[in-house]
Design a protein around this nucleic acid. Sequence first.
DNA 1: TAGTGGTCTAGACCACGCA
DNA 2: GCGTGGTCTAGACCACTAA
Lengths: 248, 248
Amino acid sequence: MTDHVDNDGAASPKLGFRPLYQQVRDMFVRRLVDGRWTPGQALPSEMELAAEIGVSQGTVRKALDALAAENLVVRRQGRGTFVAEHDEARILFQFFKLAPDDGERAFPESRVIHIARGAATPEEGARLALKRRAQVIRIDRVRLLGGRPAISERVTLPAALFPGLDAREVPNNLYGLYAAGYGVTVANARERLKAVGLPPEQAAHLDVAPGAPALLIDRLAIALDGSPVEWRVSYCLTDGFHYASDLR
Amino acid sequence: MTDHVDNDGAASPKLGFRPLYQQVRDMFVRRLVDGRWTPGQALPSEMELAAEIGVSQGTVRKALDALAAENLVVRRQGRGTFVAEHDEARILFQFFKLAPDDGERAFPESRVIHIARGAATPEEGARLALKRRAQVIRIDRVRLLGGRPAISERVTLPAALFPGLDAREVPNNLYGLYAAGYGVTVANARERLKAVGLPPEQAAHLDVAPGAPALLIDRLAIALDGSPVEWRVSYCLTDGFHYASDLR
DNA sequence: TAGTGGTCTAGACCACGCA
DNA sequence: GCGTGGTCTAGACCACTAA
């Protein structure tokens, strides 16, 4: 066992104090990162984990509650604690904020326009924290909402993380593929929104006039270990749809 | 004392079970709503509250932690628990999502264009859940970011909630005024974003050409008791700025 | 009925802010 | 030094699920 929790001894002088339950949380995240715990799997019970690690059940509980708050695990009373999956329902509510003005949210269809790999541009390298001259995979696709083309986007990925992705069938649910196919779990994302005039290329894909107002969404997706794993730039038409944001 | 916590007895049959700490949380929210606890005030210590209510300190703690997670109270180790205030810093990070593309976030200046009261339109009535022919106050203003006009917005309020607001000086920080002047605390807000072409009136206020792409933010602000208290429609220019959204 | 997570309690000790 | 919230533990009981 390479995991360990240690809050006593000379290693905990004055600064650098970290609560036990957070150390336990970090240990659990490590198990998720290195694939010891995989999506959908049932974790051992709180009691078993507590006995294994050598802390109280309450401390394990605080650690698991923290992971549940980050949507990394799902707790179900009477059944157990499970590693979260990137199924469509989760994506739809956690990462896809575009909803119809009235009516139910629905998962968009996708149409891949182009997929290729090449050397990262300076901007791509900067956003994805890549070494000079690293390879990236670029996916251009159009997504349909309610049957109409509404999103034109480019997804840029570090090729090193996703070997062979450019040569395979690309499913609708990319984050599910990252997890199931490459062991890469997207933990969170930062989005920056702007209103812009639609560039000619995107306008053609969406079948509207160039210069039409579009919502530009620039998203950087972050993996469990904190590293950026996807840069996505989406142009969205917003008549009949809106981007929903809840401020608490 | 009208507050009470009761989880035994015939009132708790099979359904309708509600954890004690949530009942305590609700009791605390009631105290915030009715003004027994006011912004900035220090709450009694956990021990005192536990003794007063007749539950354990741990249960009070869970209730207060829940309120802290909702940004309704602020907990400071060694000092105490305080009712949250709508100071500029809180607004800036919790409710104002527009940030410069590079550089520090800053609070925008405001210039009131017009303020008046009148009968609610059907749409205003629907959004604010008003009775037919209720009065509303409308505030039109322009907000400046980095010295440049960047936001043109209309704020619509139920006149009954804010008597005399249309006749007084309107400060930059509206939510602070609602709280300090009228005992109305904005607890959260729902925003819907679209990209639109700027209407002529807003274009004139912002000194750009009509039809220029703008970010339309439609915000409904919700009070502590769950009722809508403000409807705000903002047209934002987004060159040099973006709307930041973190997905977790 | 057995096992899981959820709630509630009680008490000890720690880190922090302040007088 | 004192009082605050923060952490950690231990144990009891409850609600839910599945066999």
